[in-house]
Design a binder for these strands. Structure first.
Lengths: 205, 205, 205, 205
DNA sequence: AATGAATGAGCGTTCATTCAT
DNA sequence: AATGAATGAACGCTCATTCAT
């Protein structure tokens, strides 16, 4: 009996995302999907023609839903370290919130990096998506530093692009440590890491 | 027919490492191992009681063989940016060389991160090993910055630990980008990234 | 959106026939049928209650459309080897033409025997149909030989029924070889085989 | 626990042959094979790497075991219709007996043609094997007719090759009818058909 | 020390079929 | 008349593992 649910597709995507994040692509079987979606194998195949197609769809769904919002005129807002921090953390918090909202009340044992790297290694097409995402995030940071520069909040003569890139990589490295070590409470841990990293960054430059 | 190889164990470890790095833990089957070692399933089980045990052994084998050598008195050697760079690159080059030597003439299509993260997610015990490793690398960097400080090669008043940690994370982030994008020629790419990152770092501080 | 095709049923039959001939009953799935008819699964089930029913319908459709036409007074026409050959080949050509017309311009990679035998082994009811068909063809041949006999075109004392049956079996065996070896251009090949077989037959009797 | 049976391979081949003959390649599943061999899926895959490989192996096994024996000097033996018939039937009986022996006491519901045609349509490589087989059988028949000719037991001036080919095709056609109509007792039916066909053949030439 | 026969659970995928709309 | 969501069993095949030899 076909259910009236129009959200079967969303149900599949969401459940699959959750499972992929928790256990990794390879470790999630259709049996798992059946169990957690409440659908039959056939129904899932009705919406996604293969596990591979499901991977891509889930990945795009995740990025779509959690893409960092770009501020329109960052240089009007970012004047000093304090406003930099505030805006950055606000952006990330928003991202995390939309992520948590996306997940609903479903419990989430995160092992995000595994999923990311698996996804990439299984599917070349996803690599490009991630490269774009990383450029996007770098651009945002550059906007922030441009603001700081306009307000003379950073030492003269520093290369804005270099600063942005350096901080971006530090943040990436920091994220790695967090995800390495922390499976639960990662939301708090990662926000604290962002704060510490930015604070440290302003100390060393 | 017993093989002449006395080092059956080493053969298994090496072959497995290569396969894990290339395809990831989950994607390597005993069938693959049999094919590439020239041994039988039984023989592999004779040396390693499970695929899990093999994973740990291989991981330790890898870290053992490529651990960054700690200089005895870094502050005597590291006097300025130039000597910093030289020593750091020398250490990493040594690491990579011992890695390549380890692999012998076997071709290596790297997908290293996948293996690392898979290993970690499959096996809690490996996480601790990696944490130790990361502390070790951080300590080395701190030694370098202490040397720089002794020779007044960095601005006064900068926190040495902070500098080391910041650079460490930047390097980690940099490694990620390289491994994301580059599957072949990663040796060159990663050395260049190290050089660029260190150069940039000295520009921004 | 309802298709303009009024002859949905004919569309299904034709497409299915083509697919069955090309790939065999077992290798044709509803997915294939959907793809090639442009209809939905439900629509096909609306016309044929099961794949089995579809098989029978298609089989009957095929036989109906390609049944060899019986000449009214063969003994008036068939006077000698030449007229025998002419009439026989004309009949077969007609059959093949109506078959090709039936298939329209759809390309047809023939593997006809597989389909026939599959059909029979899947469905007892079809066996009887084929037996009837074979009797029909035998009767036609007997009519031809009766004509020859009336015109003293065959050696005296030969049993007409025996001659007809013998030739019929030879032709059957010949068809088998053709279908074994030839997937494309079977129309030409089979006509040539008919000609050779009849010529040979007149040589040996 | 590995059994001592050295005949696991033979067991698989025999059981599979029986099932293929009875139900056809497509209709035999590994589940069936497991059930009838008493082995596990894995064990069967240990011996044959795929269902396709199994098909070829079974096919070769069948032909090997039932190939018609070639008489050394047929023209010394075949002198007239009677000796022709005797030798031919003896050869076929031998073939059938070795086939029945091969099958052991296992009950056999024959649907042989389906299997043959399926095998061929699934696997190009098998087609060639069958062509060779058919040439072999034709050669044997030609030897017989040469014998007849030497003893002036056939009308003068008849082309020996033509006679052999014609009879061969008649026999092929005859086999088809038998297999079409008869599933049980096919051994008797086919021998009777051979006898009738040969008798008829000598009547019409 | 090393083999390879054998297991059985599980994999991703396809199947014919049902039925509310 | 026609759709397409949904089912659940079955498919061929691979897996890590065991163990008698």
């Amino acid at each position: 009996m076909p259910k009236i649910t129009q959200d079967t597709r969303a149900n599949i995507l969401l459940t699959t995302l959750q499972l992929f994040l928790e256990k990794g692509y390879k470790n999630v079987s259709y049996q798992d999907l059946v169990k957690h979606t409440g659908l039959s194998k056939g129904a899932i195949y009705h919406y996604f023609e293969s596990k591979d197609a499901l991977l891509i769809a889930v990945f795009e769904f995740l990025l779509e839903a959690t893409k960092e919002p770009e501020n329109e005129k960052p240089h009007e807002i970012v004047k000093d370290q304090e406003s930099f921090m505030k805006l950055f953390i606000a952006g990330k918090t928003k991202q995390i919130d939309s992520f948590k909202k996306l997940m609903g009340n479903k419990p989430l044992k995160l092992n995000r990096l595994l999923f990311f790297f698996e996804a990439i290694s299984e599917n070349q097409q996803l690599k490009q998506i991630l490269v774009e995402l990383s450029k996007h995030e770098l651009t945002i940071l550059e906007g922030y530093f441009a603001g700081l520069n306009m307000h003379h909040a950073i030492p003269k003569g520093k290369d804005i692009h270099l600063l942005a890139e350096s901080l971006y990589w530090m943040l990436q490295g920091g994220e790695m440590s967090v995800f390495f070590l922390q499976e639960d409470d990662w939301e708090d841990a990662i926000i604290k890491m962002y704060q510490k990293t930015i604070t440290d960054f302003f100390k060393i430059i």
